[in-house]
Design a protein around this nucleic acid. Structure first.
Lengths: 230, 230
DNA sequence: TAGTGGTCTAGACCACTCA
DNA sequence: GAGTGGTCTAGACCACTAT
């Protein structure tokens, strides 16, 4: 009998795994046994074990019992980058500037990726993000006018399109791709670096109930790092 | 009164948020009210709301009630990359080859980052990972001998150091940094690309209870993309 | 078929925080 | 001080699955 509270139990069990009391792949005692050992209700043990399973540390099967995950799939979490917050997190002052704001028909490839009818126009925006006056990232964005017609009247010089959308559009799903690319001339010009510099790019597409909302590419200043804890 | 099960409730509430019934920033009914409405116990509602809060969709405060998060911090999750799985996920055949396996004293900067005493040796490994015979990634790795002395006798030609460590060392914490860099000559040679090509790099450090275990840099083949769902 | 985790309930008390 | 979420409990039933 040690303590209670599912947090405490969770921590304790995690320790027992880490110290090797239950090696990788081993079966750990059932909930009822643990409940007796810790002197708490089975529900409490259940919460602790479920949390550890969520964290990828345990695998649980009915009748099969609970095992220490033998191939720990550590899940990294990170918040979707909001440029202003990234900048301000480094203690710099944020500023942004809309460079391009037009309606145009996207190229075939992009239109297809966006679920737009051929020939259909969308809102195309280019924005520069600054940290302490220096270019921090260059943003190219497509916005679906059918989904968000009000973007045309949004005060995008005051609030970045990113934040405006986040504050306006209800929750949505999406995906992100990160990759590296050599800077083309216009990208290099935008973030004031040299042609060919390795640039970290994030390419995000956002959906709301099967409907495309926005697709945004962010070209970060050379040297940018995306940090994540495991 | 609709249904029960915290999954159902969670889904229902998520829908009500998405449809705008509760706009961004709005206060949603308290747990007791919802419990009455859904015809289930407060505990069930609590679970559903906690899950949504974990997902970054709600913010909950003790007396302040539960609000729809006005600045949705969508959490992206991804599994820490295990190269073999990445390769095999694309349907390619995986192979790896240890290029360098020596003991040496790391440079000052690295030794400091690794918590090693000055002059202390560590195991340095360079490994090439192949997909269908083509270079997929180039790995540079430091391993702390004090933490994992048995690495010296591990069959690293059969199993990559990455997998061996994952299967051998108990759970641990760590951090990852992703960035882009222009390929130096020896990196370019290793992955058979040209000097200066933009390379996607992941730099991971792993700890076990304050003790450094391993630090690994992975230089991915040009064109590599890290994909994540939100 | 039996054992394990998954979940629900009803009631209770506590901890935080807003007014 | 009062209202909200955070958590625990004890008991119950169900669903899956290993044997």
């Amino acid at each position: 009998m040690i303590k209670k509270s599912h947090h405490t139990v969770r921590q304790s069990i995690q320790q027992r795994i880490e110290t090797g009391e239950w090696p990788l792949g081993a079966l750990i005692p059932g909930e009822i046994v643990l409940a007796a050992e810790y002197g708490c209700a089975r529900t409490t043990i259940n919460r602790a074990l479920q949390a550890l399973a969520d964290a990828g540390m345990l695998i649980r099967k009915r009748k099969g019992g609970t095992r220490v995950c033998s191939m720990p799939v550590r899940l990294a979490k990170f918040a979707i980058p909001i440029v202003r917050e990234q900048v301000e997190a480094t203690g710099c002052q944020y500023k942004h500037q809309v460079v391009v704001n037009i309606l145009k028909v996207p190229e075939k490839e992009i239109a297809a990726g966006l679920n737009l009818a051929s020939g259909e126009k969308a809102n195309y925006l280019e924005t520069l993000h600054f940290a302490n006056g220096k270019p921090f990232a260059f943003e190219q964005r497509w916005v679906n006018l059918k989904a968000v017609p009000t973007i045309l009247t949004a005060p995008l010089h005051e609030i970045s399109a990113n934040e405006w959308l986040v504050k306006t559009v209800p929750f949505s799903s999406g995906d992100v791709v990160f990759y590296a690319t050599n800077a083309e001339q216009r990208i290099a010009d935008a973030i004031e670096t040299t042609l060919g510099t390795a640039i970290f790019v994030s390419d995000r597409t956002t959906w709301f109930k099967e409907e495309f909302i926005t697709k945004v590419k962010l070209y970060y200043q050379a040297g940018f790092q995306l940090y994540t804890q495991l």
